[in-house]
């Protein structure tokens, strides 16, 4: 089976000389279809940096990123944008919805960018939002939605172009525990099983261990496998 994402000895160094920070240090990671990988680690350990490289938002100082069997090397800005658009769905802690657009339009906009327009896009957006329990919030703008609702819109947006890989950075960071749990169940449960997507979640949230297939630990830029059952911070 071809991996959705492979990181081979990926390293990111910020700055140089005395201000040099080795944020990610020789990380290997493989994500297969249908797999939920949770990456945990203390603040400043390099989680966001790692996810940014996996999401083609940041180029590694060293090592390879292989997305859907394609080694990322020397791609232009617009080639990377096209890959992000179709291959990767992002879920951010801060939701990052477009404030001027309604819930439905926020989902439609990425489909429009990928060339799916008109009623087809509209129906797909409604269907996705419906699955996520937002059928009654289609025409609300982000400012009129609760945090959980906003995150569900963001999830719908991440799924809209059928990207095989979903990257989520602290997706429950701004949500209370009950809402966070509901949102993650939606993201990971039904949608993943049905469609075999791979999901990488970066989080401090211990409760996410329950839904993850694999838990990794990142500390000082180095990644290690953790036993799911092992106590945290051990």
């Amino acid at each position: 089976m071809e991996a959705l994402l492979e990181l081979n000895l990926v390293t990111k160094v910020y700055g140089a000389g005395r201000t040099e920070v080795r944020a990610v240090d020789g990380v290997d990671l493989r994500v297969d279809p249908g797999e939920i990988v949770l990456i945990m680690g203390p603040s400043g350990s390099g989680k966001t940096t790692l996810l940014s490289m996996a999401g083609l938002l940041l180029s590694p100082t060293d090592g390879d990123v292989v997305l859907g069997g394609r080694r990322i090397n020397g791609h232009s800005g617009s080639e990377l944008a096209a890959l992000r658009l179709r291959q990767i769905g992002f879920v951010f802690q801060a939701y990052n919805l477009l404030g001027a657009l309604t819930a439905r339009e926020n989902v439609e906009v990425v489909m429009n960018m990928a060339g799916r327009k008109g009623t087809a896009a509209r129906r797909r957006a409604e269907e996705l939002l419906g699955t996520l329990g937002l059928a009654h919030r289609l025409d609300h703008k982000p400012a009129d939605l609760s945090g959980g609702e906003k995150q569900r819109v963001a999830i719908a947006r991440a799924l809209a172009n059928d990207a095989p890989l979903i990257l989520a950075d602290e997706p429950t960071g701004n949500l209370d525990s009950k809402t966070g749990r509901e949102v993650m169940d939606l993201l990971c449960g039904k949608l993943r099983c049905e469609q075999g997507r791979g999901i990488v979640i970066v989080s401090h949230d211990h409760r996410l261990v329950e839904i993850a297939d694999r838990v990794m630990w990142l500390e000082d830029g180095k990644l290690s496998q953790r036993d799911k059952a092992a106590p945290l911070n051990a």
Binding site: G55, S78, R86, M113
Partner: peptide
């Protein structure tokens, strides 16, 4: 700037 950065992150090309 932030909204434009979001658009860029989720896959908008520079031209768009």
């Amino acid at each position: 700037a932030r909204e434009f950065a979001v658009l860029k992150a989720i896959g908008a090309t520079s031209g768009r």
